[in-house]
Design a binder for these strands. Structure first.
Length: 832
RNA sequence: GCGCCUGUGGUGGAAUUGGCAGACACGCUAGAUUUAGGUUCUAGUGCGAGAGCGUGGGGGUUCAAGUCCCUCCAGGCGCACCA
């Protein structure tokens, strides 16, 4: 073996071997237990970043580990290739989105291969490829046929100067990021998916996802936002229309002193038409159009609103209440109308204070600190109803039920369940996405393209001016077509799909990526699905994961897949950050980003230290769920460790005593090495398998290596030492695949280290004859003693009482209590 | 603003089930080797002179709290057209 660790040569050599032998190709094999490990596929920006390296290193360790444990491992990779950046490149640099994207994919492919990842490249997918999006369109049509897709008016961000639709991201402080002019709203007819039909199942199934982090499930629960409440209908005085509100606190209905509608509430304009209020109301609505939801619902903002000149009648008390519009009411949640109960809701309280509206307390919370008749803030606590006619004196929880029932009897309301989750708006007025395969016929309405005509190809005769509702409109060949039903001239939908759709089923396509006959074979999907381990950034905790769950459920209902849930276990990795000095010379730790200039490129690190070092550092520096701060010093430390291993093995091979196998424990040194060897096997196995704590797995191997360095200078038991070398290389193989493969070859074992069976450990080597325990007095450490490992509590206490130091400390004191925890400590509680 | 999460030596982190806080690594200090430097090896390294004190701050539960409860503070992520 060479005496220098030449990573450049080694890594290239083995990457070529793995590619030439198609080392990670897998087929369905009913004889073997399958394991599907999946990392979230990247958007092909052109350059791999450290977040990718972290994500794929984690997945690769798991994939290689499972393979060595005998599983048939599916580990695929692909590209989420549609999206806005390609289109921006087209507008800015006059390059075709397709050309830009395929170029980036080629580059990213090269970089991924340089990392030595164990992918089955035969299953690679790219969502922008017609052979992929053809099936995306097919799925859309199935959803449409099932009634899951529908069209509805909805507003988009519109830049009046660029004459184009803007993503939320392109709106900076209410202005267009490109030209800086204030952004407005524009109503368009757009496609939606009825994800709300699945709200209850999406919520209920969360309980079954035991392999998901609690925090992700909590976030999804909150996002779905199920609340039980009631709808109540209010008459409007001298006007022929009613208002229906949703409230979770119908018990407070007697405290309602005003009504508030969302500015977008459909009939507002009609209600003020021709009245003295019209101008003010219109101006207010216009102002709200420039605000986003976060600004609108902020509870720190001073409340704003406008009276619309109408009064609603409280169906319970008969009171007349002014109707306002205000931005804190959202059209998208509930009914877009709320009853204002200032005494018991803080937002309503703020609004009432601002507009001088009465505050009527209707819940007595039995708190002496609260003066109900002079409230300083809203009081949302439970209590007893007051000022509430026949309901006064009733417990408020009971009243929620009772009042809803009475409303239902009188035909003015009912109990309802409301979700915060809204239907999924999937239309995008953009070019670089899957064309929505729908055709509009004046006679037949919206009709799907015939399935045999799929894919509806993206037109290439398109101009990227950055203007207009969708660039596809500029195509001379795309729009005009004939109706698939009646054959009359018809027009194609020019909108494309949200790229979140593409990424909502790619894990299924991987199961049968080259199928041109169907979306995927059910048999193959049934074999591989569901994904045993999904790994990706925590930023996807809600949207991507919710959409993918929805797709899987809908496809399940279509009979295409057997499970309702796609991802059995989920690992959310933290971000990769790096410190930098800002303008004020303060040290800031932030996500790596170009604009901050704190980016370390993986290519740079691979060039300098190799892929093995890069992989190892990123796994060693922090557990995967946590944020990881990049440290150049830390990288050097890992590089040093790999060199240390290289030298250790080189010397070992040089000496020529490679005789692994059964060994005897002859002395303390043997025992210590055998202990650390078996401990490392146990630790690495459990840390990978049960908790993904790669950092502690690696540190246990470091401890073993440190001991081997000491051990080899003494009286060497060759069978033991050879076993330690061999095992140590196997343990490291999932983390640093190139160096271990090269060493494996040099050790002369034959085959690939990655095809070896995972080692098991000897429990008896982990038993210590003597253990150190601490003796505490009143919880403070006072003495450490060595005792045999298997002593009972009483025996431990006897020894402690005989100890000289302890004797001295408890002499003359009143011993209240003695606690012994076998294997750990003794605590003596004394008084006086 | 709302929701979720995180906070431990000079630094990244360890402590998996309430039971010795600081494993492993970086950095630093001293020594050895080589000596042009680096590399490599050995020893030391939470703070404090010490009794002791120490896991963002304050309070609580417990024989015992980094871990459980309350509260405050700081930072991060998501918020529906970025992916």
């Amino acid at each position: 073996m060479q005496d220098k660790y030449n990573f450049r040569e080694i890594e290239k050599k083995w990457q070529d071997v793995w590619a030439d032998t198609n080392a990670f190709k897998v087929e369905e094999d009913p004889e073997k237990e399958k394991y599907y490990v999946l990392e979230m596929f990247p958007y092909p920006s052109g350059k791999l970043h450290m977040g990718h390296v972290r994500n794929y290193s984690i997945g690769d360790v798991i994939a290689r580990f499972k393979k060595m444990n005998g599983y048939n491992v599916l580990h695929p990779m692909g590209y989420d290739a549609f999206g806005l950046p390609a289109e921006n490149a087209a507008i800015k640099h006059n390059v075709e989105p397709a050309e830009w994207t395929w170029g980036n994919i080629a580059e990213m492919n090269r970089q991924l291969r340089e990392l030595g990842l164990s992918y089955d490249w035969d299953r690679e997918v790219a969502t922008a490829h017609p052979k992929y999006y053809r099936w995306m369109q097919w799925i859309f049509i199935q959803f449409f046929k099932k009634g899951l897709a529908y069209k509805k008016e909805s507003s988009v961000n519109w830049c009046p100067s660029c004459q184009t639709v803007l993503a939320n991201e392109q709106v900076v402080d209410g202005c267009c990021e490109r030209c800086g002019s204030p952004v407005g709203k524009k109503n368009l007819s757009q496609w939606y998916f009825k994800i709300t039909d699945y709200a209850e199942r999406l919520l209920d199934n969360l309980d079954k996802l035991e392999g998901w982090p609690t925090k992700v499930k909590t976030m999804q629960r909150n996002w779905i936002g199920k609340s039980h409440g009631a709808e109540v209908t209010f008459q409007i005085k001298d006007y022929d229309e009613t208002l229906t509100v949703f409230t979770t606190r119908v018990d407070t209905i007697y405290g309602t002193t005003f009504m508030v509608l969302a500015p977008e509430y459909p009939s507002v304009l009609k209600m003020v038409e021709g009245t003295e209020y019209e101008a003010d109301v219109k101006a207010y609505i216009d102002r709200c159009a420039h605000m986003n939801e976060i600004e609108r619902t902020s509870t720190t903002n001073e409340k704003t609103g406008v009276f619309i000149g109408k009064y609603a009648i409280n169906p319970f008390s008969g009171a007349e209440m002014p109707i306002y519009i205000s931005d804190y009411v959202l059209m998208g949640y509930g009914t877009g109308a709320v009853m204002g109960v200032p005494a018991h809701d803080q937002r309503d309280f703020d609004f009432a204070k601002k507009f001088g509206i009465d505050i009527i307390p209707v819940i007595d919370v039995h708190d002496p600190d609260i003066d109900l008749n002079n409230l300083q803030e809203a009081c949302a606590a439970e209590g007893t109803l007051i000022n509430s006619a026949e309901f006064s004196g009733m417990d408020n929880k009971e009243a929620i039920q009772k009042i809803a029932e009475v409303a239902e009897e009188r035909g003015i309301g009912k109990k309802t369940i409301n979700y915060r989750l809204r239907d999924w708006l999937i239309s995008r007025q953009r070019y670089w996405g899957t064309p929505i395969p729908m055709i509009h016929c004046d006679t037949c309405g919206w009709v799907p393209e015939k399935e045999e005509n799929l894919p509806v190809l993206l037109p290439t005769d398109v101009e990227f001016t950055g203007k207009g509702e969708s660039p596809i409109v500029t195509s001379k060949t795309f729009v005009d077509t004939v109706c698939p039903i009646c054959g009359k001239p018809a027009k194609r939908e020019v909108d494309t799909m949200d790229t979140f759709l593409d990424s909502s089923w790619y894990f299924l396509r991987y199961c049968d990526a080259r199928n041109d006959e169907e979306v995927f074979s059910k048999e193959k999907a049934d074999y591989w699905m569901n994904v045993d381990q999904y790994i990706g950034g925590v930023e996807h905790a809600i949207m991507h994961l919710m959409y993918a769950r929805f797709f899987q459920m809908a496809l399940h209902d279509l009979g295409l897949v057997k499970d309702e849930e796609p991802f059995k276990n989920l690992l959310t990795q933290g971000m990769v950050t790096k410190g930098y000095y800002n303008d004020k010379d303060e040290y800031i730790i932030a996500k790596m980003s170009k604009s901050l200039g704190n980016v370390v490129s993986p290519a740079e690190i691979i060039e300098k230290y190799g892929a093995d070092t890069a992989r190892m550092f990123i796994l060693f520096a922090a557990p995967p769920e946590r944020e990881l701060e990049w440290s150049d010093r830390g990288v050097e430390g890992c590089y040093r460790f790999l060199n240390r291993i290289w030298r250790l093995v080189a010397e070992f091979i040089e000496k020529g005593n490679n005789v692994p196998g059964e060994y005897e424990i002859r002395n303390e040194a043997d025992k210590k090495l055998a202990y650390l060897l078996n401990y490392a096997i146990k630790k690495v196995t459990e840390d990978i398998r049960d908790r993904f704590n790669f950092n502690t797995a690696i540190s246990s191997v470091m401890e073993l290596v440190n001991e081997m360095y000491k051990y080899k200078e003494g009286d060497v038991n060759h069978a033991l030492y050879s076993t330690a070398v061999k095992t140590m290389i196997i343990l490291l193989a999932p983390f640093v695949p190139h160096i271990t493969e090269e060493i494996w070859e040099n050790l002369g074992y034959g085959g690939s280290v990655h095809a070896q069976a995972w080692p098991s450990y000897d429990e008896s080597a982990l038993v210590k004859d003597e253990i150190e325990i601490v003796i505490q007095i009143n919880g403070k450490n006072k003495e450490k003693i060595n005792i045999p490992g298997e002593l009972s509590r009483d025996e431990m206490l006897e020894i402690a009482k005989e100890n000289d130091i302890i004797k001295g400390l408890i002499e003359g004191k009143n011993v209240v209590k003695m606690i012994a925890v076998p294997g750990r400590l003794i605590n003596i509680v004394i008084k006086g």
